[in-house]
C-alpha cells in the first residue's frame, strides 16, 4: 500500500469524485424539500425543483405583466453591463497605473503610498458617499465595483512589474529601448497574462459589490431581484437566481482562463500554471 499522499485518482475517478458532492447536495436538498412539502404544501423555505422550474419559466420566458419585459434576461443584462463596464475600466486603470508606477521610480515614490491607503478603504463604507456624489443611477454602482477592485489589481500588477528581472530591462536598453519602448515591448506584453490572473481573482469581489449596490438602490438587476422577492419569501426565485449568478461567475472565469491560455502560451508553458 502506498502512502495516502502518494495515491492519485485516474481521470475517470477524478471526474466522478468531483461530481459526487454536487450530486449529494442535490439529493439531500430534494429529500429535505419533499419532506417539508409533505408536512405543509405551502412551505416556502425549500421549494421543490418543479416550482423552481415554474418560477424560471415565469421570469425568463413570459412577459412581465406590469412592464412587458422578460425580467430574468433584463436583470441579467443590466447586471452584466454594470459588472463588465466596471471591470473594463478597472483593468485599464490598473494596467496603466501598475505599469507606470512599476517602471518609473519617481511615480512609484509619488503614488504608491496613496494607492496602498486607498486599497485599505472598505468600499462598502463609502457607498453612501458614492450615492450622494454620483446619484442613485448606474454610475454609482459602476464606481463602487471599480473602487472595490481597482486598487487590488493595481497593487498586484505593480508587484508583477517589479518582479521582471532587472537584467531584462537593462538588456532592452542596450538594444535601443527608451522608457516608452520598454513599456510597449517588454513590460506590457509580460503583464497582460498577469492582468487576467488578477481579474479572475477579483471577479468574486466585483460580484459582491454589484449585488450589494443593487440590493440598496436599483430598478433592475440580479441582486435587485433577489432582494426584492425576499419580501415574499420567494425562495423559488431566489435559489435559481443564485445558481445563475454562480454560473455567470464561473463562465467569466472560465472564458478568461481560456483566452489567456490561447493568447499567452509562453506564460503557461514556462510557469506550468493550470
Amino acid at each position: 500500500m502506498k502512502r495516502l499522499m502518494n495515491r492519485r485518482p485516474n481521470r475517470a475517478s477524478k471526474i466522478f469524485l468531483g461530481l459526487l458532492p454536487f450530486i449529494i447536495i442535490l439529493l439531500v436538498y430534494a429529500s429535505a424539500s419533499s419532506q417539508r412539502l409533505a408536512e405543509n404544501a405551502d412551505d416556502k423555505l425549500l421549494p421543490s425543483f418543479s416550482s423552481m422550474a415554474d418560477a424560471i419559466n415565469r421570469m425568463a420566458f413570459q412577459e412581465d405583466k406590469r412592464t412587458g419585459q422578460y425580467l430574468f434576461w433584463t436583470d441579467t443584462w443590466s447586471s452584466l453591463k454594470r459588472l463588465l463596464t466596471a471591470v473594463f475600466f478597472a483593468a485599464v486603470i490598473a494596467l496603466s497605473l501598475g505599469i507606470l508606477l512599476g517602471v518609473i521610480p519617481y511615480l512609484h515614490a509619488n503614488f504608491s503610498p496613496l494607492i496602498t491607503v486607498i486599497s485599505l478603504i472598505p468600499p462598502m463604507a463609502i457607498l453612501p458617499i458614492l450615492f450622494i456624489v454620483f446619484g442613485l443611477g448606474e454610475l454609482s454602482k459602476v464606481v463602487l465595483i471599480g473602487i472595490g477592485i481597482t486598487p487590488f489589481i493595481t497593487r498586484d500588477l505593480l508587484a508583477r512589474v517589479l518582479e521582471i528581472p532587472q537584467e531584462q530591462l537593462i538588456k532592452a536598453q542596450t538594444l535601443g529601448a527608451n522608457t516608452w519602448l520598454v513599456i510597449t515591448r517588454i513590460v506590457f506584453p509580460q503583464v497582460c497574462p498577469r492582468l487576467i490572473d488578477a481579474l479572475r481573482l477579483s471577479l468574486g469581489a466585483a460580484w459582491l459589490f454589484l449585488i450589494a449596490s443593487e440590493a440598496i438602490a436599483a430598478d433592475g438587476g440580479l441582486g435587485y431581484r433577489i432582494f426584492l422577492v425576499r419580501r415574499y419569501l420567494a425562495m423559488d426565485v431566489i435559489i435559481p437566481y443564485v445558481v445563475w449568478v454562480t454560473f455567470l461567475a464561473f463562465m467569466t472565469d472560465y472564458l478568461l482562463r481560456k483566452f489567456s491560455k490561447f493568447a499567452f502560451p509562453w506564460y503557461y508553458q514556462a510557469s506550468n500554471k493550470a
Partner: peptide, 10 residues
C-alpha cells in the same frame, strides 16, 4: 550578456 534572464520570455 548576463548569466541569466537576458532573453525575453514572451
Amino acid at each position: 550578456v548576463f548569466q541569466r534572464y537576458s532573453a525575453f520570455p514572451h
